[in-house]
Simulated scan of single mutants.
Amino acid sequence: METSRRTILAAAAAAGLTVAATGTSHAAAHGRTPAKELFGKLADGTKVYRWTLANGGTRLKVLSYGGIVQSLELPDRHGRYTNVSLGFDNLDDYLTATTFFGALIGRYGNRIAKGRFTLDGKTHQLSVNDGENSLHGGAKGFDKRVWDVEPFANSSDVGLHLHYTSTDGEMGYPGTLRVTVTYTLTAHGDWRIDYTATTDKATVVNLTNHTYYNLAGEGSGGIYGHELALAAARFTPPEAGLIPTGEPAKVAGTPFDFRRAKTVGRDIRAGHEQLVTAKGFDHNWVLDKGITDRPEPCATLRDPESGRTLEIATTEPGVQFYSGNFLDGTLTGPSGRTYRQGDGLCLETQHFPDSPNQPSFPSTVLRPGETYRSSTAHTFSAR
């Protein structure tokens, strides 16, 4: 049974969260305007702030550094709250870690082979930071930039507009790219991400968010018992370096078939060559729905013990499911517990890896006069 509205209201009140409800006054629905506090400073003295959003029984904490989701608090089936995202309680760890915990990813989410692509007859060499490849925008991608943050609150929603301008040539990408990412918490506690971008030169763009989820709670252990469903009959198998071959493969009869919900760990050690290559799941699923104008359902994740459930809908044609394969016990979260392999997972909505070098994949090219748009919605419940 899903957690009742009354249970969420009571638990949220006890946790100091705001729950907007139908018929509440304009002021009451606002709750408090997103709260701002100093989180730390960069070496050059730049201040990094943490913003706290609370609405609909959900609390989200976001850093101006990297647009990082530092904490996501949700109730279980009994109304008990915990943080379900992996991360750190201090800025220094975010500055040195290479895990992309909770970050906004750009200009290009995922990998580009040899950090190189050709557009309109010109070859562009990107920052290489993953072997011989470029990963998540290069050595200093959007995850390592300080974003301008503009809070908002209306009669039902609260949120943040995050703005960043990536200059022509940054990390090797052509064109000055002006980006706005909006995080919204709705009156029902849903979390929506809306991305827009414009450019003054032809370029490639693929934006996403890299939150690591553990619906049992940050620091609680592994996610192999989580149940996952993906609405995808195909995936894009990669070769060495996790660069796709360019030929999607059917999931039927393989460990990659999540069309019916199954536990993450059921087949993860099945010995399939793709699982050996990636040390687990770290693959792009080709969503059956394709590119859509509005977010459509693509993934469901559930922790049977707590009942917490995450449903994802997106406009994107793909989702990268990463099972936390490279967490190695060297990082410690806010709980004081170390993160080991499989202690969190990512579901990154996206266009496909290496699309600029794969003519058969959906295009990621953005030209002057066009607007890049992408939206992903996260719906939370406790069953």
Rank of each mutant, 00 (worst) to 15 (best):
L160Y: 04
S166W: 07
T167C: 09
T167Y: 12
D168C: 12
D168H: 08
G169A: 11
E170S: 12
P174Y: 09
G175S: 09
L177T: 09
R178S: 11
T180S: 10
T182K: 15
Y183W: 13
T186F: 12
D190V: 07
I193N: 01
I193Q: 05
Y195P: 00
A197C: 07
K201N: 10
A202P: 02
T203W: 09
V204L: 11
V205Y: 05
L207N: 02
L207I: 14
T208P: 01
N209D: 09
H210Y: 07
Y212I: 06
Y213F: 15
Y213G: 01
A216D: 14
G217I: 02
G217Y: 03
G217V: 04
G217R: 03
G221A: 14
G222Q: 15
G225C: 09
L228W: 03
A231G: 01
A232V: 01
P237A: 01
E239K: 13
G241M: 03
L242D: 04
I243S: 02
P244E: 06
P248S: 03
K250M: 13
P255S: 05
D257L: 10
F258M: 03
V264K: 00
V264Q: 01
I268P: 00
R269F: 13
R269H: 14
R269E: 14
A270F: 13
V276D: 12
A278S: 11
K279A: 12
H283E: 07
H283R: 03
L287C: 02
L287D: 00
D288P: 01
K289I: 05
K289M: 10
I291E: 13
D293K: 15
P295I: 02
